[in-house]
Nucleic acid binder design. Structure first.
Lengths: 329, 329
DNA sequence: CGCACACCTGAGAGCGCTACCACCACAAAC
DNA sequence: GTTTGTGGTGGTAGCGCTCTCAGGTGTGCG
């Protein structure tokens, strides 16, 4: 940490200060090839003294490596980026990427516009892509040049490995809990129907209901609280004897509870409500929300790590979801 | 979008395809200097045909520009990064940075360890820093090389411009609402006391209480729901006649409401509770939370834009906070 | 002694791009 | 005629780094 020069130190500066060539300095600092103990010490001391920080940009250029990881969220419009779920994903990814000198960029990937993905594939500064809210057409549009550098959070495909919570397992756990609590007329407020990974919990719901000889009552939601409230009331209007609502997300569930309360119904006495995600506020809502865990940060961390490592990854990595029984159901 | 070559097109490819020199192609695509209409057309057509995407890395290297924006969150330990507030900040920043080819990295900046900031200043790949949860010592440690590329979210200093919500104004609005509702024995659950920007609402609280001849009742929190619950009970134990709690964050307020309910107290009948932030779940909690807005995304967007633009910025930019009166107070 | 095989080092090419500079053609002004 | 633009163009240096390659020096072995 020498005198504060205007210009940050370069590898050349370090090499000169250590009395070796740039190649040797690079070898020492890069930890590859041979270097005598003496050279090693001198280079390291010089680097330390000058406050040398390798220029990631130059390294990336020569190595042909990328320098940013793009979180691409598909959806019909850019409001998909406003979701707290996306916030957590991006934040966790950014945390993983920081030590590698990689930055995270957040982009909206319009549904049915494969040009965006193609551009990402032709962009050499992109070291990887995290596809969020993927659908099959999006996965089919992944250019060959991107293979191995792209993973999906949610639905996967043979070409694109996926990381996700075990949607079916979580739905299963919640619905069994509802059933064990004596609920029989369970309506489900879904996520957006075009979102293939969200459909897995719908499928699980339908399967379980049919197997138990119970009625299937589906109302479409979009993971938001506002829509959740409207959807819950819609369900009650269509099927007044509904005694439980299974919401595809905690936000939806919280919205449903508020709407039910607004109509004078007691939760869980009149209608039980359960969600999915176990967001921080689920524990402190009134009534405290029964839900299933969704380890978003762990999923994002694993996905980002996979892309950064570049090692082959199993086609599907499902993170278990466990029931959190509280008061609302 | 020609045949999918294994190697993404470079500027050389485009120049060759257009029958001009690399310099001319660069000029056309970069939109600077002279170029004949003919050359312009040919270059643009070639670029389009080859699916050319400029390599940000190479451009950054030659321009001496950075390629990532670091969100540095100070705190005693890395758990500060788990805050939903940080998630929103990072996500909004990443959204702003994406079109510029800049990625966002999230780092923990240990309190009292200026080496981290110094390293950031010596890192040529860093185009800017967003300091979060700043304290005066951290601001004093900002190296000269970083000046003009660093802004603070929260407390500022003469050398580092700041962007923040109008903490005092928000506190003021909430406390006046509490007072207008007849509350007189108002306890405040603060944020972490070392966090200078959070202290501004404490100061506002103290000022207002003193001016109104009301007792000052402070309990320390840390913005989390869990701590908020414990702090609320602590306040009630120390001052049993407390009729309102002003929480420094919505999470704190939600935790307080849950804890109060657990003790058989009714909100707002027995104790009114108000928060600060207006998070999405404030509207759907039971009772719906009275709070003041905190436009986190707008703040982060403005801060990131300021760093990216590199233009001088006023020392303090305060975003107004407005009261959102709901049921809890 | 010759040869192989370590270990160690520096020269230098080149990643893809920008931007400085020299240059050319042509027209207008002196 | 010469000078001075002015629009258009290409050559090329060089950003900071990695890594190949050629060339050392020293040791063990036939």
């Amino acid at each position: 940490m020498e005198t504060p020069t205007a210009r940050p130190a370069t590898l050349d500066d370090v090499a000169r200060a250590a009395g070796v060539s740039r190649a040797t300095a690079s070898r020492v600092l890069g930890g590859y090839g041979f270097a005598s103990v003496d050279a090693r010490d001198r280079v390291r001391a010089a680097a330390d003294r000058l406050g040398y920080v390798p220029n990631i940009t130059a390294r990336a250029l020569v190595r042909g490596a990328g320098v940013r990881l793009v979180v691409a969220v598909s959806g019909t419009d850019a409001t998909v980026l406003d979701d707290p779920y996306v916030d957590r994903l991006v934040s966790a990814a950014a945390r993983v990427c920081a030590p590698h000198g990689v930055g995270v960029a957040l982009e909206w990937l319009p549904l049915g516009a494969p040009a965006g993905l193609r551009r990402l594939g032709d962009d050499r500064s992109v070291c990887g892509v995290l596809l969020v809210n993927t659908t099959a057409p999006v996965l089919d549009a992944v250019p060959a040049g991107l293979r191995g550098r792209v993973v999906s959070i949610g639905t996967g495909s043979p070409a694109v490995p996926s990381f996700d919570v075990d949607n079916a397992g979580g739905a299963d756990a919640v619905l069994r809990h509802l059933h064990a609590g004596g609920r029989r007329r369970i309506a489900m407020v879904t996520g957006p129907r075009w979102l293939s990974c969200a459909e897995r919990s719908v499928t699980a719901y339908e399967g379980l209901m049919r197997a138990a000889g119970l009625p299937v009552r589906l109302v479409t939601g979009d993971f938001t609280a506002a829509r959740g409230g409207r959807a819950a009331l819609e369900a009650l209007d269509r099927w007044p004897d509904t005694d439980a609502i299974y919401a595809a997300s905690d936000a939806t569930a919280l919205g449903a509870i508020a709407a039910l309360r607004g109509r004078g119904l007691r939760v869980p006495h009149d209608v039980a409500v359960a969600g999915f995600d176990d967001i921080p506020y689920a524990a402190v809502s009134s009534p405290a929300l029964t839900t299933a865990t969704h380890p978003v940060a762990r999923i994002a961390t694993a996905a980002a790590t996979a892309v950064l490592d570049g090692r082959p990854v199993p086609p599907v990595t499902a993170f278990p979801s466990t029931l959190v029984a509280r008061e609302s159901a």
